[in-house]
Design a protein around this nucleic acid. Structure first.
Lengths: 319, 319
DNA sequence: TACGAGTTGCGTCGATTTCTGCGTCGATTT
DNA sequence: AAATCGACGCAGAAATCGACGCAACTCGTA
């Protein structure tokens, strides 16, 4: 293991701050070299440097230095190895099974449960739908249920709907059942501590289900949040952010039409700028997002990001 | 990181009130930091925060702020021993019980629970909202909760929203919580027998909450139903009716714009014409309804009509 | 039904406190 | 000799303070 010990000046130059500031950070926030004898020169290990990097990043994102320091101090310094992406087990069917043509919903290779759910939906059988969802939810959890069961079926219906202009009732009924199932999970979960997360749809955005999935997943993990719902005008969102000062905000946009980057910009410019802004959903174009906005690909990624924020803020006090 | 001293802004954000309100509470009710030098910044200890939490909880329960403050001031806050409890002059109110004012939602004479719910909503406090609704739902049932608690508060918000063009976030958050609560009831109820009832919004109609209330009330009464949800085109509705052959159909319309009588006519002309068609909601004009359509005034009336249908079918089938 | 009195949350304004990065100085380490 | 250390202080920015006032609600009364 490379045993490099950086001097104060080197670290300062690397971070872009003055040497004295490093000293101040050490005294004021306890952000210094892991071991240091008073009067002697400071020697920063790579781990110490990583901590400082976090500090730098957060402060340049607009976080209060005191708070950023609290975070940097508590985050277990991430090892050099990159985090393995959370892989959602995608149950592949063993045989190249072919399943019904006829009046069904294309669910792709999403497993038998999905096909069953699709059938129940076609029958408008809300009881069977509710049972299937509840079962899977209890067994596999929210994230897996969403990715492996609900999303495929919903996507399949949407596809068919676009092609044949029918199936609207099916889509409505299923949506409603999914919504109910998520709501049940959300209400069952016991939130711990104040809500530091705000979930909202973009302006004019109607689709709430993915956000509800996120909410349910968070509730399942014991994370408190506030959910605003569909069609939230930018002004209202900013207003809510200013009132509640969330650490992170998730904005969902389903289509390009509702993905106005101005909403994000307004958020970033708000007085109580949230620590993290997540632009979720297929509507957002990666190249049009303002700097400082993160774009999760997955429900799983969104959840883990939210969890990270929660964990790091857990013991800290706002400043 | 042992002693947390929360700043005014942090506390305000945590409680969901404005910073100025905290100051007002301090001056008016003596609810401030235990020790505070005039001119200096306020530093709230955990004990102080606990006192404010009591204040928050009481006001969300509908208690007059002045009285809530009196309680909060007297409750022995379990704090670090050694310091004598701050005794504040107990300003007794000369007049009798009064309430109202400030940035609140007009609920009229709808009871303290409604006022508490309104306050919780203004604070975007979804936990308190959920608790209040759940409590009332369990105690009074769906119908009473809707008429006596939810509808007044929602109407108040809507009114205010129309007047000031604000409060959208509040409306969204509350709607979401109500929706969740109803969903929980709907899923808890055990349906008996096949669903002979179809609930649907009119075409283009966005408001689902009243229908959800009806659904929850039906579930509470053990009636099975199918719920299609918002924005159901007439063709899709007819399709659903033909597929499932319900005995009764409820169509909700909130505004005149979505209350096209043609939808009802189409229903009555469908091959599997339902026994009963209910046009619910303030959108429908009594004089424009085709013959054979019933228009319930109330949630209660809609429920009892649905029950009547269920019962009559039961006898005819079983007999 | 309309109106005045009492209550209450919160926006605004100029002054003050607090935070934060960094420069300076004499002594010490490398 | 160069770099750094600890202590101290400063200046700009952000947050907060106290005072004041407004708007809107409720309730009793005319």
């Amino acid at each position: 293991m490379g045993d490099e010990a950086l001097s104060a000046g080197a670290v300062a130059r690397r971070l872009g701050v003055a040497v004295t500031t490093l000293r101040t950070w050490h005294q004021r926030y306890g952000l210094g070299p892991s071991q240091h004898l008073p009067g002697h020169h400071r020697r920063y290990t790579p781990a110490d440097l990583a901590r400082l990097e976090i500090m730098r990043k957060l402060t340049s994102d607009g976080v209060t230095p005191a708070e950023a320091a609290r975070w940097a101090r508590q985050v277990p310094v991430p090892g050099p190895a990159g985090e393995p992406p959370t892989v959602v087990a995608n149950r592949v069917r063993p045989g190249g099974e072919r399943d019904g043509g006829g009046q069904t919903i294309p669910v792709g290779r999403a497993g038998p449960a999905a096909r069953g759910l699709a059938r129940a939906a076609m029958r408008l059988d809300s009881v069977a739908i509710g049972e299937t969802i509840g079962q899977t939810l209890a067994t596999d959890g929210v994230v897996a249920t969403w990715e492996g069961l609900l999303r495929p079926v919903l996507a399949g219906i949407g596809e068919r709907h676009a092609a044949t202009a029918g199936l609207i009732e099916v889509e409505h009924l299923l949506s409603r059942c999914v919504s109910e199932a998520f709501a049940t999970v959300a209400r069952a979960g016991s939130a711990t501590g104040p809500a530091r997360l705000l979930l909202s749809c973009a302006d004019e955005e109607q689709h709430t289900l993915p956000l509800e999935a996120l909410a349910a997943a968070l509730a399942e993990a014991g994370v408190a949040y506030r959910m605003l719902g569909a069609r939230v005008p930018a002004a209202a969102l900013v207003e809510a952010v200013n009132r509640t000062g969330p650490a992170a905000v998730v904005i969902w946009s389903h289509t390009l039409a509702t993905a106005d980057p101005a909403q994000l910009t307004a958020l970033l410019a708000s007085p109580r700028r949230p620590l993290l802004v997540l632009a979720a959903g297929p509507g957002w174009r990666a190249d049009s997002l303002p700097a400082g906005v993160v774009r999760p690909v997955d429900l799983a990624e969104a959840v883990s990001l939210a969890l990270a924020v929660r964990d790091s803020l857990d013991q800290s006090v706002e400043g």
